[in-house]
Design a protein around this nucleic acid. Structure first.
Lengths: 215, 215
DNA sequence: ACTTGTCCTGTCATGCCGTCAGCTTACCGA
DNA sequence: TCGGTAAGCTGACGGCATGACAGGACAAGT
């Protein structure tokens, strides 16, 4: 499928090569967590990995290229987010549970990959299709399932016909992503972590079903 | 209030100085719209403004510093967003209208300042307090008003007691900001611009009042 | 014309970028 | 055991952005 891992100049990477390559990616990840994206320099990553800048350029065209690798890896993991929504019932108590678990799982994932997702978000917002695609891959995992849920409720007449399932699902997912990115921001509104989640779940439930949850 | 405009080395800027300073800010704004934040260089901004890098450093410590100036300016304008919510009724048809106008006004503002808001969002997400404060200033304009609206409805018994007004208001505003930042993204879900707004308004209305709107 | 303070830029040391040639290391077949 | 071959790494280099400074250009008042 992916073929072998290759260096920029076309060589196939062996065991040792893949190891240093991975080490560079790991160090880049750490740097992204600790310093502003704009200030992450190739030389710093290389130094931290105990190697030289030239080695970095052997495996990646530039910092952005390496970031895309990390993001791609994360996106694979993100595919698992589908399970948070797929096949769930949005009726009655199980509906509330579905909303709660979706919020919890989503926020957890976003928090875990905070640093890299910041960069992906930026790239996507700037119109870079490569970042945009990765972002979509992750969000699709949830949005598509949610869209189906809304369509289903619509078919049963439980949700108004003039609601656009995709628009609602997409907006709710965007909300979750945004809140996750700025969780610290809510503390200054006087909102604590603990009370944030149930309120998000409430909004999700309201959005999907149009009704208040029965807890 | 703000005192006079000063250069980095403490001189007060005169008429001509302020003009070039402003020109640098304008050119920086344009650059932010056309190229990735990471690639915006002082030398490019200076060239575009028909001046030299040294001049840039006379007025700003670095690119980030100049970006903060632009953002601050925008934040002032953002204070006007309060009017989109303040003193609105969320009952009956006027409630639906309030939601629609809020969505419309908010998306318009975000779209107008797209480029700079991307950077502010990034800075805030990275934990930079200066960007964070600016972002808060803008969002507060809307969130505080919305929070009050929810509290009011709560006092009248129209909204459940266990809802956290601030959490709900903040989340909804975060949703609006996120959707605005990634409007293009929705097209790939097959969601058109036109249908996005009413669905957002629906979500806002549901979130604030807990009920479907009467149109 | 002269002074004063603002305004701009040439220049320079420093540091990162991105590339290349060349050296070292690992693997493998004879 | 011994080359042979390809992978792996780095020193070094030209190029460019950074950021600081000193000094020249300019406008305004006297």
């Amino acid at each position: 499928m992916t073929g072998q891992v290759r260096t920029v100049d076309g060589r196939v990477a062996g065991r040792r090569g893949q190891a240093t390559r991975q080490k560079l990616l790991d160090c880049l990840s750490e740097m992204l967590s600790s310093s502003p994206y704009r200030d992450v320099k190739v030389i710093d990553v290389a130094r931290r990995a105990g190697t030289s800048p030239a080695t970095f350029y052997q495996y990646f065209p530039d910092v952005e290229g390496a970031v895309l690798e990390i993001a791609e890896e994360m996106a694979k993991e993100g595919a698992g987010l589908t399970e948070l929504v797929a096949g769930r019932s949005w009726v009655g108590k199980s509906g509330w549970q579905a909303a709660e678990e979706l919020v919890d799982g989503f926020l957890g994932f976003w928090r875990k990959h905070e640093a890299i997702l910041r960069v992906v978000d930026l790239g996507a917002a700037e119109g870079d299709k490569r970042f945009y695609k990765i972002r979509m891959k992750i969000l699709n995992a949830v949005t598509n399932s949610l869209t189906d849920s809304v369509k289903e409720l619509q078919a049963k007449g439980k949700v108004d016909k003039d609601v656009s399932p995709a628009a609602v699902a997409g907006s709710l997912v965007a909300m979750l992503a945004a809140v996750a990115s700025h969780q610290k921001g809510f503390q200054s509104w006087g909102v604590k972590q603990a009370e944030l989640k149930p309120n998000l779940a409430l909004l999700v439930h309201l959005g999907i079903t149009g009704k208040k949850p029965t807890k």
